[in-house]
C-alpha cells in the first residue's frame, strides 16, 4: 500500500528539518526527548550560607504592597517559618497561589506566607495587580529589581520555605502543593 521509498523520503525530510532548526541555535533539544529520573541534586554543606536546601539563607528585605519594609530575619523572629512564592500574575501562578491560600495556609497559621511579585516593578503596580487578581487578603512583597528572584535563582512558581533558624527547607516549583505541606509539617 505504501511506497517504502516515499516513507524514507518523509523520514529524511523530518530529520533534515530537525537538524536545520537545531543547527539554527536551539538549546536543550534532546533533554526532553529522553527524560532522566536520576537524582542529580548537588551535595550541600549544611550550615553554609546559600539557597540550597540545608543551607543558611542570606538575609534580604523588600517592600510590601503597603509600602512597609519587610526583612527576612525579622519575619522569622515572629513565625515558625516563612514561605515565599514567586508570582508573575499568570494562570499557573493563580492556580498555585489560590491552592496555597485555600488548602495549605489554614493548616499553618504560625507560618508567614508571601507572594513575591518580581514583574510589576513598583509598589503601586504590584498593589493594583494584587487587588485585581483577588489577593487583597494575602501579603505581597515587591521584588522591584529582581534581587531576591535572582538571589534564589527562582522562576515562576518557585516556592521557598525557610525555617525560624534561617535554614532553607524547600526551593522548587510549587507543583500540587503536597511537597510544601510536607515540608511545613516538619518545621520545628
Amino acid at each position: 500500500m505504501f511506497s517504502v521509498k516515499l516513507i524514507w523520503r518523509f523520514i529524511l525530510m523530518a530529520v533534515l528539518l530537525t537538524s536545520l532548526l537545531t543547527v539554527a541555535g536551539c538549546e536543550g533539544l534532546t533533554d526532553d526527548l529522553t527524560p532522566s529520573g536520576d537524582d542529580e541534586r548537588p551535595a550541600v554543606d549544611a550550615g553554609t550560607i546559600g539557597i540550597q536546601v540545608g543551607q543558611q539563607s542570606p538575609d534580604f528585605s523588600m517592600l510590601d504592597t503597603l509600602g512597609n519594609s519587610r526583612g527576612l530575619y525579622d519575619e522569622l523572629s515572629r513565625a515558625r517559618g516563612v514561605v515565599l512564592y514567586f508570582n508573575m500574575w499568570c494562570p499557573i501562578c493563580d492556580a498555585h497561589a489560590s491552592h496555597m491560600r485555600a488548602q495549605v495556609m489554614p493548616d499553618f497559621p504560625d507560618v508567614s506566607f508571601f507572594l513575591v511579585d518580581y514583574v510589576t516593578g513598583s509598589v503601586a503596580n504590584s498593589r493594583a495587580a494584587q487587588l485585581s487578581n483577588g489577593y487583597a487578603g494575602m501579603e505581597v512583597l515587591v521584588d522591584a529589581d529582581q534581587f531576591v528572584f535572582n538571589l534564589y535563582e527562582a522562576s515562576m512558581g518557585t516556592t521557598i520555605v525557610i525555617d525560624s533558624a534561617g535554614i532553607v527547607m524547600m526551593n522548587e516549583d510549587y507543583k500540587d502543593g503536597v511537597k510544601l505541606a510536607e515540608v511545613l509539617s516538619t518545621l520545628p
Binding site: G37, R41, E172
Partner: peptide, 16 residues
C-alpha cells in the same frame, strides 16, 4: 508520562 529531575535549571527530587 515522563520523569522529571530538573525544574527551570535546578535539579530537584525526581518525580513522575
Amino acid at each position: 508520562s515522563r520523569d522529571v529531575n530538573r525544574e527551570y535549571g535546578k535539579y530537584v527530587e525526581p518525580y513522575s
